[in-house]
Write a protein that binds this DNA or RNA. Structure first.
Lengths: 186, 186
DNA sequence: ACCCGATATGCAATAAATTGCATATAACCC
DNA sequence: GGGTTATATGCAATTTATTGCATATCGGGT
């Protein structure tokens, strides 16, 4: 999988500890890559064994020690190699849609509640993304240029979330009609 | 994971063999759930051990035998239980975006080629979805009503693919500018 | 004083997914 | 006749991801 390559990409930009990487995954790749701390620590261990990365232990007096990882020449080559090969399309697995698909088994109200819950999440995510975008657009032209590619990934997040919310509108409208149809039957 | 519940949802609607389920995943849940034949066969085996499903062997003279699975009462209950609990949000892992994020390492042309390749795939998927939608919209009102929820999942697919293509337009425009900027430098 | 959250890392066990291999028939095209 | 695709199923090994537990410090709130 390409958790390995996501880590290499992050370390290529800047060295960091496992915890740093976790935070960077959450803050910067949040929309398109999710990894737990377990996944990251295990992956780092494995990548170190493969000599793709190296680390130095940084003693800290106040907090626990941290291992600061950086990419090696081998790791850099591996990343370049990966970059030049076509990536395979994503596997999509969306449990919410499975639930909607089989939604006849429960009440429209229950489906509505579920959608509403996810809507809140998606709306919050979108708001976060829009705030980051506003910051980017307010930055100097030179910085915008260097961050253009990460910005484009952010755009994917924004368009994706907006699309999700538009879909939720459709679903909620359809479920509302179902609810009233059911009420009429009684 | 809820591959289990996706299988239960499919068997709830109609019994079928492993191969049938594979085809149904591809044809009907294609946008939102992907499973390999290995995953399905292994899952069926496990679910049979858990007594969520049962099967009858159907001998066929011309083709290999098939095991026709159907949902049990226990399986039905398990599905209902799952339906009534909130599903957790999806984990997104999009390798293409990782590549774009680290895109400074390769030429804009290479990124363009990669995007173009994915664009073709997404456009084809969208066309397929639109054809299914046209069929749905041409069906009698009664059928539209019974298939409304699956139709809403299809809508997710359509809106999602359209959103992806809109994003690809943005990316391609941005990459084109990069290419010409690079050409000017020389 | 005590609990909680953030920082910081990791082991061990289990569960899930992928990859590679394996078999067998029928239909269709070249 | 030979190759490919579709039907139909499965084992075994490996890789990945998840879950549960464990440790340790600091700062802030109650």
């Amino acid at each position: 999988m390409s958790l390995k390559h996501a880590v290499l990409a992050l370390l290529e930009a800047e060295e960091g500890s496992g915890y740093d990487l976790l935070k960077r995954f959450q803050a910067r790749l949040g929309y398109f890559w999710n990894a737990s701390h377990q996944q990251i620590y295990q992956q780092l261990k494995k990548m170190h064994a493969e000599q793709l990365i190296e680390f130095e232990v940084e003693s800290q007096t106040d907090k626990p020690d941290r291992k600061v990882y950086s990419i090696t020449e081998t790791g850099h080559e591996e990343l370049l190699k990966w970059m030049s090969q076509p990536v395979k399309p994503n596997k999509v697995n969306d449990a919410l849609l499975v639930k909607l698909y089989a939604g006849e088994l429960v009440s429209p109200e229950q489906l509505q509640a579920e959608i509403a819950h996810h809507r809140t999440r998606h709306q919050n995510t979108l708001n976060t993304f829009l705030a980051i975008e506003a910051e980017y657009l307010a930055s100097p032209a030179a910085e915008q240029k260097t961050l253009q590619l990460p910005y484009l990934t952010l755009r994917r997040g924004i368009l994706g979330e907006q699309s999700w919310l538009n879909w939720a509108d459709e679903v909620e409208a359809a479920l509302l009609k179902r609810t009233s149809a059911e009420a009429t039957k009684r």
